[in-house]
Computed example of a mutant assay.
Amino acid sequence: MIGKIATGEIEDEMATTKSAAAQLGSLGGKKRAANMTPERRSEIAKGAAQARWTVKQD
């Protein structure tokens, strides 16, 4: 079967489908954002930006 997928004889079905957990995860983030105030979303975004741009001292 791997050979047939590699040569294009058949399509890999696993590559195109999302797991149930992945499908629910995307819905959860949208629902969480919809329930937050714009001020709270801004606070979270500022914290995330600060974490990305902070240089870690070893």
Rank of each mutant, 00 (worst) to 15 (best):
Q57C: 13
E9Q: 12
E11H: 08
R52L: 15
T37K: 05
T17H: 06
G28M: 15
A49P: 04
K56C: 14
A15T: 02
V55P: 11
L27E: 07
G3D: 04
E43T: 08
A49E: 14
A49N: 07
S26E: 15
A22Y: 03
A6W: 07
S26F: 11
G3C: 04
A22D: 04
M1A: 09
N35A: 13
T7A: 14
G8N: 04
M14K: 06
M1C: 07
P38D: 05
E13L: 07
A6G: 03
A15V: 10
T7E: 12
D58W: 14
G8A: 04
R40W: 01
I2Q: 07
A22R: 00
A21C: 01
Q50M: 13
G8W: 10
I2F: 05
K30C: 02
K18F: 08
A48D: 11
T17C: 06
E39K: 12
P38C: 01
E13T: 01
I10S: 09
V55D: 09
K56V: 15
M14V: 06
Q57W: 14
A33S: 02
M36K: 01
D12K: 03
D12R: 09
G47E: 12
A48V: 12
K56T: 14
Q57L: 14
K30P: 00
K30L: 01
R40E: 07
D58P: 12
Q57G: 14
E11W: 12
S26I: 13
G3N: 04
L24I: 07
W53A: 15
A6E: 08
S42R: 12
G29L: 03
G28C: 15
A15C: 05
T7K: 15
K46P: 07
E39L: 13
A45S: 10
A34W: 05
T7C: 15
I10L: 08
A51P: 07
N35D: 12
E43I: 11
R40Y: 02
L27F: 09
R52N: 12
V55M: 15
W53L: 15
K4P: 01
E9G: 10
S19A: 03
E11L: 13
L24R: 11
N35H: 09
G47K: 06
T7I: 14
I5R: 03
K4Q: 05
I10N: 07
A34N: 06
K18V: 01
A15P: 05
A48M: 14
K56Y: 10
I44E: 11
K46C: 12
Q57P: 13
G47V: 04
E9C: 08
N35K: 13
T17G: 01
A6S: 09
T54D: 06
M36Y: 04
G28K: 14
T17R: 09
E39Y: 12
Q50K: 14
D58K: 13
A22V: 02
Q50D: 12
G3A: 03
G28R: 10
L27Y: 04
A6T: 10
T16D: 06
M1I: 09
R52A: 12
E13Y: 01
E13G: 00
S26G: 15
R32H: 01
R40I: 03
A6H: 10
Q50C: 10
A6Y: 10
T17W: 08
A6D: 11
G28T: 14
M36I: 00
G28I: 14
T37A: 09
D12C: 10
N35Q: 11
A33V: 02
A20V: 02
K18P: 00
E13F: 05
M14L: 08
P38M: 00
K4V: 05
R32V: 03
S19C: 03
A21H: 00
E9Y: 10
K18E: 03
